[in-house]
Amino acid sequence: MADEVGLVNDEAVVPIRSDGDIVTARQEGRALASLLGFSSTEATLIATAISELARNIVLYAKRGEIVLALVEDHGRRGIVVTARDEGPGIVDVRKALMDGHSTSGGLGLGLPGVRRLMDDFEIVSQIGKGTTVTVKRWKQGAGPV
């Protein structure tokens, strides 16, 4: 996993197996975001997104992992969060990204909400193989000069 494009630093891997791990993942995420110099508001947005992603893993796949890393692109710096599971996969990804859609008892805000909290959002899901959601958030005003 360390050879993934754009990752420049060691990454933090948080295994997700129970709801307690959701708390760990978001605390790690906030710590890394603060380390990267994100404002406290931005760190909160990132931690909230991580919480939702980790919760999806617990809800739908039972187990998986959250990978946190620093990302650099043309002088921009940011944080990349990868939520990976080997669960059942999402049948209709498009639908899962629509507001108000849920397959697990009224939560359903997860993915569209996460998308709004972060700058970049990518999802790859294969039925029976699992789901990987990759989200990034770039530091404000840290764009190429």
């Binding site: 909160t44 909230t48 805000l109």
Partner: peptide, 14 residues
């Protein structure tokens, strides 16, 4: 509810 938390909540749709 902290200002940052409220901000994140409404963005999430909560």
């Amino acid at each position: 509810i902290q200002p940052e938390v409220a901000f994140a909540m409404v963005q999430l749709g909560l």
